[in-house]
C-alpha cells in the first residue's frame, strides 16, 4: 500500500493535481483527493491492514475533537490526511447519529476555514488564484477575484447577498461592506467565513450520500466504541422539565438531542431561564449540545440577554403571541389564559 502511495507521489505528473500536495492535506474534501484515491487504486479492504491502525486511531481522535467543539489542527503528509478524512467520513456515517455528523461537519468546516484564512494571507498571487478557483469555484460555484494589490478579494454582489443575509451580525449587512461595480470587497478571513457554512453542508451531504459497503472490521469496532463514547452527550440532563411551559420544554428536548435550535428559540430558552432565576453557568450548560456550541460566545450571549454585558438592556421572555408567529408555540390546555411563558403554572395555583 505504502509503496503504491509513493509511486503516485513520485509520479505526480500523472495526477491532474494543480494544487500542491500540501493543499490536499489541508483540504481533503477537494475532488483531487478523490482522484488521488482512484489513481492509487485504493480499496476498502485495505483499511483492515495492520499499517492502517494509525490512520483509524487518528480518524477517531479527529471525530472526538470535532464533536467536542474544538478544531483538530494537526496536519500530516497528504497521503495520511486524505485517508484519515475518508475514514472519518466512514466512521461518522457508521455511527449514524445526526448530531455527531452535524458537529463533525461544522468542525471540519472550521478546520478548513482556519487553513484557508492562513493560506489566503500568505500565499503568492498564482497559488492564491489556484486555491480560490478550486475551493470556491469547483465546490461552491463561486467566482472570486482579487484586487490589483492582492490585499482584498472580490465577490459578486448576488453571491455575497445570497450567503451573508443569513448572518445575524450587523457588519455583514452589505451597507457595511466596500461595494463597487457589482463586487463586494472582502478580507481573506471574511471571504472564508462567507462559505464556511456551505462547507459544513457539503461534508454533511457527502456523508448522507455515502453508501457503506461491508465495513472493514477495524473501522466497525472503532466506530462502535465512538458511538458509545459520544452517546451520553445527548442524554437528558438532570433537570426535570415537567414544570416548564411546553414551548420551553420543546426547545430543551431539541437541544438535548443535539439538534440545531433556531436563533429565536435559543433566545426564548435563555430569556426564560434567566427569568426564572437560573444561574448563567447552568444556562450556558443547557446549550452545550448545540452543533455550533462555543462556551465563550454562549456565555457572552446569555450575559448580554441578562443585561450584564454589551448594550446593558435586559431582555425579557418573548410573549406567547410573538412565539406563535415564530412557530415556537406548542400550547397545551395548561397554557389557557397566559400571555407569556413565564406565567405558565402560576395561574393554576
Amino acid at each position: 500500500m505504502r509503496c503504491r502511495f509513493m509511486a503516485v507521489v513520485q509520479n505526480n505528473t500523472c495526477l491532474s493535481i494543480r494544487l500542491g500536495t500540501g493543499d490536499l492535506a489541508r483540504y481533503p474534501f477537494l475532488n483531487e483527493a478523490g482522484e488521488y484515491l482512484r489513481q492509487s487504486e485504493f480499496g476498502w479492504e485495505e483499511l483492515d491492514r495492520p499499517d492502517m491502525a494509525d490512520i483509524i486511531e487518528r480518524a477517531a481522535e479527529r471525530i472526538q475533537v470535532g464533536v467536542s467543539g474544538k478544531v483538530y489542527d494537526r496536519v500530516e503528509r497528504y497521503e495520511t490526511e486524505i485517508l484519515t478524512f475518508l475514514v472519518t467520513l466512514i466512521m461518522v456515517k457508521s455511527i449514524a447519529m445526526e448530531p455527531v455528523l452535524k458537529k463533525y461537519a461544522l468542525a471540519e468546516a472550521r478546520r478548513a476555514e482556519k487553513f484557508l484564512t492562513e493560506d489566503l494571507k500568505k500565499q503568492n498571487e498564482a497559488q492564491r488564484r489556484a486555491l480560490l478557483s478550486k475551493i470556491f469555484g469547483d465546490l461552491f460555484g463561486l467566482t472570486i477575484g482579487t484586487t490589483e494589490d492582492g490585499r482584498l478579494f472580490k465577490v459578486k454582489v448576488t453571491d455575497y447577498l445570497a450567503r451573508s443575509s443569513h448572518f445575524h451580525e450587523q457588519e455583514w449587512k452589505m451597507i457595511n461592506r466596500l461595494v463597487s461595480g457589482g463586487q463586494v470587497y472582502l478580507g481573506p478571513d471574511e471571504t472564508v467565513r462567507l462559505v464556511r457554512n456551505e462547507l459544513a453542508v457539503l461534508i454533511n451531504s457527502r456523508v448522507h450520500a455515502m453508501s457503506l459497503p461491508a465495513l472493514p472490521k477495524a473501522i466497525k469496532e472503532k466506530a462502535e466504541v465512538l458511538r458509545i463514547a459520544l452517546a451520553p452527550h445527548y442524554e437528558y440532563t438532570a433537570d426535570a422539565v415537567t414544570e416548564y411551559p411546553p414551548c420551553v420544554k420543546h426547545a430543551m428536548e431539541v437541544m438535548n438531542k443535539g439538534e440545531n435550535l433556531p436563533h429565536s428559540a435559543r433566545l426564548m430558552l435563555a430569556t426564560y431561564m434567566l427569568a426564572i432565576g437560573k444561574p448563567t453557568d447552568e444556562i450556558v450548560k443547557m446549550f452545550k449540545n448545540a452543533p455550533d456550541f462555543n462556551e465563550r460566545i454562549t456565555r457572552y450571549q446569555v450575559e448580554h440577554l441578562a443585561g450584564s454585558k454589551g448594550s446593558r438592556t435586559k431582555y425579557f421572555v418573548p410573549s406567547c403571541d410573538k412565539l406563535r408567529t415564530e412557530n415556537l408555540c406548542f400550547a397545551t390546555k395548561d397554557c389557557d389564559g397566559i400571555i407569556n411563558p413565564t406565567q405558565f403554572g402560576r395561574r393554576r395555583k
Partner: peptide, 9 residues
C-alpha cells in the same frame, strides 16, 4: 483595512 474608497464609505 479595506479603506473608504467605494460605496457608502
Amino acid at each position: 483595512r479595506s479603506g473608504l474608497d467605494y460605496g457608502w464609505r
